[in-house]
Design a protein around this nucleic acid. Structure first.
Length: 446
RNA sequence: CGGGGCGUGGCGCAGCCUGGUAGCGCGACGGUUUUGGGUACCGUAGGUCGUAGGUUCGAAUCCUGCCGCCCCGACCA
């Protein structure tokens, strides 16, 4: 993409309303624009990141054998009356009436709807296990939205629903989700720690939240320092293997790690030596629940078992806050100059800065590099504007592309361009071909 | 929802207390500058002062209602 033809409304000054780094940087980098309290438009750069995160989520869900679908944002109130949550959810649910006066709501989640779909079409234990998920916009009418997309009212979320015949099978579905989530977050360059949590209005007490450690997190967290040494990496996993998934859950949840909701100071002291006790803050980027028959029973989601008996299915729901992740990643990865995107989610793989637009050598070198990168399947943001070098660098640093190739007449005289890492700030001079090859190598396999 | 604050060109702000016909910086646009970390200078455009009403000869400024936004708390994927 040539910057001169792109839509990237960067701001030099920080809008007054932004209090935390991710919100400030998303506004300054032209990623979002607030339309109402807690409601945002996603401008092209922000939209790219959102889509990349979404794609990673889809890929990892697919790997775990989960089936994508799409449910609507607006739901009929009657479904929620069946589960009893129409009243329980309270003011946080946005209620609407259509022209006929029928009660509708903008869905904050989809347990009722998926249960309705299930009961209409699934009747036998032979159809289980089943995991359906979708990625859709949700709305929770927070009393006080803040922190940009980290705590908006409208948010984009992956929510998956598991249906199993027995509690044991449902626990495996839970474990499988935990494993797939570990992979998902790692691909985004994040360490998200599963912590024992509380059910909240979704219900259920078999649940973990995934938290990214950050000063600006909404939750206070307490954990054993050893847990931050764990990584899932690229280990082989068979998602159908109950024992293997259970072992991963054991590995990642056996150490003390809890949010303030479930924290127990006595247990913390008892189980964790003082030197390893950590108290910090975290951003919740996902949560997994097993809640048994909480919805299947009242809503009649039953199947016929092997012995001919009619039994309510065991369910779980599992969420990843896709839009919130954009903010969380920035909270975890930025510096005083701007965002530092992990390679897995960056909106463009590489920036190209032409220091002397209009110089024949520089222009053609930039064009060659741009096309060579494209040949490797890599997208570059080529700054072909008439700005001064300083302004171009400042913009690059702000929007945080992990790699930058700087091209100018001075270097080209010696046959070199400069490859710079956003994260370390280190630059290296090399031929244009070598720079392209290096960037291609960095992204190989991603 | 309780407490506090703010709405003035795209962004950041001054002006309000003490009423007199709207200003600064950044940005945008047109030039000059030819430039390796937000260059300098000249010029231009852009504002129903959130909104409705009231007081007044006269309201951005004083009064009242409403709307919106932000901060602290409670709440929260």
């Amino acid at each position: 993409m040539r910057l001169s033809r792109y839509f990237l409304p960067v701001l030099k000054e920080t809008p007054a309303e932004a209090q935390i780094a991710s919100h400030r940087l998303m506004l300054r980098a032209g990623m979002i624009r607030q339309q109402a309290a807690g409601i945002y438009s996603w401008l092209p750069l922000g939209y790219r990141v959102l889509r990349r995160i979404e794609r990673i989520v889809h890929e990892e869900q697919s790997r775990a054998g989960h089936i994508p679908m799409l449910m609507p944002t607006l739901q009929p109130a009657d479904l929620w009356r069946e589960s009893g949550r129409y009243d329980d959810y309270g003011e946080e649910m946005l209620r609407i009436a259509d022209r006929h006066g029928r009660d509708m709501l903008y869905g904050p989640t989809n347990e009722e709807m998926i249960t309705d779909i299930f009961r209409a079409h699934v009747g036998s234990y032979r159809d289980l296990p089943l995991t359906l998920y979708h990625i859709q916009w949700k709305f929770r009418d927070e009393i006080r939205p803040r922190f940009g997309v980290m705590r908006g009212r409208e948010f984009y979320m992956k929510d998956g629903y598991t249906f199993d015949l027995t509690e044991d099978d449902a626990k495996h579905a839970y474990n499988r989700h935990l494993v797939s989530y570990l992979r998902t977050y790692e691909r985004m360059g994040l360490q998200a720690i599963p912590m024992k949590a509380e059910g909240g209005p979704i219900g259920g007490d078999y649940t973990h939240e995934f938290l990214v450690l950050a000063e600006t997190g909404e939750s206070e967290v307490f954990y054993d320092a050893e847990i931050t040494d764990l990584t899932f990496g690229d280990r082989e996993i068979d998602y159908d293997d109950h024992a293997q998934c259970a072992a991963v859950l054991e590995e990642f949840t056996s150490r003390y790690a809890r949010t303030d909701d479930t924290h127990d100071e006595a247990v913390f002291h008892d189980r964790v030596p003082e030197a390893r006790r950590r108290r910090s803050r975290g951003i919740e980027v996902g949560q997994i629940f097993y809640f048994g028959t909480k919805y299947s029973e009242p809503m009649g989601a039953v199947v016929t078992g092997p012995g001919g008996e009619r039994v309510p299915v065991h369910m779980g729901s599992h969420g990843i806050g896709v839009s919130r992740l954009v903010g969380a990643i920035i909270e975890a990865s930025h510096d005083e100059r701007g965002i530092v995107w992990p390679e897995g989610v960056t909106p463009f793989h590489c920036g190209i800065v032409n220091l002397k637009q209009g110089d024949t050598e520089a222009d053609s070198a930039c064009a060659r590099i741009y096309h060579a990168l494209a040949g490797h399947g890599l997208e570059a943001l080529y700054d072909d504007t008439e700005e001064r070098a300083g302004a171009k660098f400042a913009t690059q640093d702000l929007i945080g592309l992990p790699w930058r190739i700087t091209v100018g007449p001075r270097g080209l005289k010696n046959g070199v361009v400069e490859l710079t890492s956003r994260r370390t700030g280190e630059s290296e001079e090399m031929s244009p071909e070598a720079a392209v090859a290096r960037v291609a190598e960095i992204y190989a396999g991603r």
